[in-house]
Amino acid sequence: MAIDIELSQHIATITINRPERLNAMDAEHYRLLSQAWTRVRDDPEIRVAIITGAGEKSFTAGADIKSYLSRDFHWAEQWLTQKDQLLNRGLEVWKPVISAINGFCIGGGVTLMLATDIRLAVASATFSLAEVKRGVIAANGGTQRVVHQLPHAIAMEMLLTGDAIDAQTALRWGLINRVTSRESLMVEARAIAERIAKNAPLAVQATKELAIRSRDMDLAAGLRMEQLVGRTLLQTEDAKEGQAAFKEKREPKFTAS
Score class of each variant (00 low, 15 high):
residue 34 S to A: 11
residue 173 W to P: 03
residue 54 A to F: 00
residue 148 H to D: 14
residue 151 P to I: 07
residue 43 D to V: 05
residue 238 D to W: 03
residue 148 H to Y: 11
residue 76 A to L: 12
residue 163 D to W: 00
residue 161 T to Q: 00
residue 127 F to P: 13
residue 74 H to L: 13
residue 34 S to M: 06
residue 172 R to H: 05
residue 129 L to I: 08
residue 21 R to T: 14
residue 228 L to C: 04
residue 115 A to D: 03
residue 67 S to K: 05
residue 158 M to A: 00
residue 42 D to W: 12
residue 67 S to Y: 08
residue 199 N to S: 14
residue 144 Q to Y: 12
residue 13 T to N: 13
residue 92 E to Q: 08
residue 112 L to N: 08
residue 109 G to N: 13
residue 203 A to T: 13
residue 196 I to D: 02
residue 245 A to Q: 01
residue 71 R to D: 11
residue 252 P to K: 00
residue 200 A to I: 10
residue 248 E to H: 04
residue 162 G to F: 07
residue 93 V to N: 01
residue 118 I to M: 13
residue 229 V to G: 02
residue 167 A to T: 05
residue 160 L to M: 13
residue 233 L to C: 06
residue 156 M to L: 01
residue 88 N to M: 01
residue 131 E to D: 04
residue 224 R to F: 03
residue 41 R to H: 09
residue 179 V to G: 01
residue 66 K to E: 15
residue 128 S to G: 12
residue 228 L to I: 08
residue 18 R to A: 10
residue 47 R to A: 10
residue 232 T to I: 06
residue 48 V to E: 14
residue 121 A to Y: 01
residue 178 R to Q: 00
residue 228 L to N: 07
residue 135 G to R: 01
residue 122 V to P: 11
residue 177 N to T: 05
residue 149 Q to D: 02
residue 150 L to D: 14
residue 220 A to R: 14
residue 111 T to K: 02
residue 102 N to L: 08
residue 102 N to V: 10
residue 80 L to W: 12
residue 55 G to N: 10
residue 62 G to V: 10
residue 9 Q to F: 11
residue 62 G to W: 14
residue 248 E to Q: 12
residue 121 A to G: 03
residue 140 N to H: 07
residue 45 E to Q: 15
residue 138 A to T: 10
residue 181 S to D: 05
residue 69 L to K: 11
residue 188 E to W: 08
residue 234 L to F: 09
residue 21 R to D: 04
residue 140 N to W: 11
residue 246 F to T: 03
residue 249 K to E: 03
residue 126 T to K: 10
residue 174 G to F: 05
residue 123 A to Q: 08
residue 53 G to R: 06
residue 223 L to F: 00
residue 65 I to R: 15
residue 77 E to A: 15
residue 168 Q to L: 06
